[in-house]
């Protein structure tokens, strides 16, 4: 999901940064959509993916962040990951297309894809509407199985507060 957010900054020079900043004060973590587990921990990558890890550390759900979804503009196609594929943290597992840009979606941690959100093929705009919703009808990308390596990868990721600060800083960078 790397650079999208950044490129869109220039596409929306005014207003966008304040939009981003406002998310700082909004505690994203409180929005609990999870149906897969009750006490999921949500973590974010610098490339704007999120992962919910179940309380038992065995399964997770992956998606792209609200910040990235806003920055992307209208998503016109989602290339879903391949089910049952094993991937390492940082591997490209799928892609989203918006405004002539094919942007990789990367695995936040090492994991095995167990299910993909087929709804997104039919309704790619769901990514713009509810990107951080991991329930049925939400904009989540894939469900995954996680092993010890994956749990360890999680340490390098940001919690919702740290991510909010991170994106706020990115938004500020735009003003220069």
């Amino acid at each position: 999901m790397a650079s999208i957010a950044r490129c869109l900054r220039s596409a929306r020079p005014s207003g966008f940064s304040s939009l981003v900043k406002s998310s700082v004060s909004r505690p994203i973590a409180i929005r609990s959509f999870s149906v897969t587990s009750t006490n999921a921990i949500r973590k974010y990558t610098k490339e704007h993916e999120w992962i919910d890890l179940s309380a038992d550390n065995k399964t997770g759900v992956i998606g792209i962040s609200e910040y990235a979804a806003k920055a992307l503009g209208d998503v016109v196609f989602v290339e879903l990951p391949e089910a049952s594929k094993k991937v390492k943290a940082g591997d490209a597992i799928g892609a989203v297309e918006s405004v002539k840009s094919a942007a990789d979606i990367n695995a936040p941690i090492s994991c095995k894809i167990t299910a993909v959100n087929v709804l997104l093929e039919e309704k790619p705009g769901t990514i713009n509407q509810v990107p951080e919703d991991d329930s049925h009808g939400g904009g989540w990308i894939a469900k995954v199985q996680v092993d010890e390596e994956g749990v360890k990868d999680l340490e390098a990721l940001m919690d919702p507060e740290a991510y909010a600060e991170f994106t706020a800083a990115e938004g500020e960078g735009e003003d220069h």
């Binding site: 790397a2 840009s101 094919a102």
Partner: peptide, 11 residues
């Protein structure tokens, strides 16, 4: 005409 490909490290 323009088109883009964005990866984790490169644009």
């Amino acid at each position: 005409g323009s088109a883009y490909k964005l990866t984790r490290q490169r644009s």
